[in-house]
Amino acid sequence: MKGLKSCFVKSFSHIYVEEGIEENPLTKEILKKFPKALKVRIKHYKDVFCRPRQNFFVQESSRKLILAAKKGELLYRGPDICHDFGNENFYYTSPALNCIYSCDYCYLKGMHPSANLVIFVNVEDYFKEVEDILKQKPLYLCISYDTDLLAIEGIIALSAMWIEFARGKEDLKLEIRTKSANYSAISYLVPASNVILAWTLSPTEVIKKYEKNTPPLELRLKNIIRAIGDGWKVRLCFDPVLYFENWETAYENLISRTFSVIPADKVNDASIGVFRIPRDYLKRMRKNFPPSEIIHYPYIETGGVYTYDEEVKGKIIEKLWSLLKKHIPEDKIFIL
């Protein structure tokens, strides 16, 4: 296997730069970090990102970076299959597409035609659109759904920029979701009361088997402890919860370990989400026959979404709910 790995070019060996953004300061900053990368000029990011017949699973072994400016709609209504955590005007935005991690179950594999990482450098346009909406109504905005923003903070400090932008805007509530152990990249910032740092937590068995390249549980917990200690609002996301052999023990261990080190009273809230994925995404993921039991599990389809059958789903929710409510008040637990 090790020998075969050497048949790949290193990730980010090539950086595709969209016309018109060469002088953007963020473009320059990113390019400086990859002095050996070959720069390839492109007209539009979709010329590379949306080519037909790309193999996501092959590309994951040698991801390329695409720098672009996002045009058109920049903020989207939050989808029904995501938690709104009781907030009105739930929106999400994608300052980047794709992630440096490779989780077996990740919907991005079915959503995007390519595994390459796209970073949109026109962050000011995003801020303007948020400000325009804020003139009309308050906003609950998730900025790290189609990527893991904190994980790529070393490439470009987008989390920090968004936090500074959100600071003091009372009508704006921001969620930054991550699996990373990269809190140190933003630890120098003064906590913002309207920003929630949300960590996805999974049992060690799941991390090892299905969440390739992600930090181990203990590292994620250490980062959470630091963030809470510094005064950040922290959300714990037990999402997706997966069904596998000995899943109950795995989640019992996860929750008991989590709350043995994290002060439960300091946790902002928590979510439970049983694995679910839009039908078309799963179909696309299955097309390349990845050897993954998560992808090929015989899910049940309801309303265009694949998930476990009602019996399994019920068991999962009941179990996680009973485990979580021992530590967190029921009104702070959100289920989907």
């Binding site: 050497s6 048949c7 790949f8 070019v9 060996s13 090539h14 595709y16 070959l38 390839v40 000029r41 492109i42 007209k43 010329d47 590379v48 080519r51 790309q54 092959v58 590309q59 072994s61 040698s62 390329k64």
Partner: peptide, 21 residues
């Protein structure tokens, strides 16, 4: 070649540069 341009139409094609060489 990591980019191939057709001069006539200016259309560009991009192979995936994944394999070592």
């Amino acid at each position: 070649c990591h980019k191939i341009i057709y001069h006539d139409t200016k259309r560009a094609f991009y192979p995936d540069m994944i394999a070592r060489h």
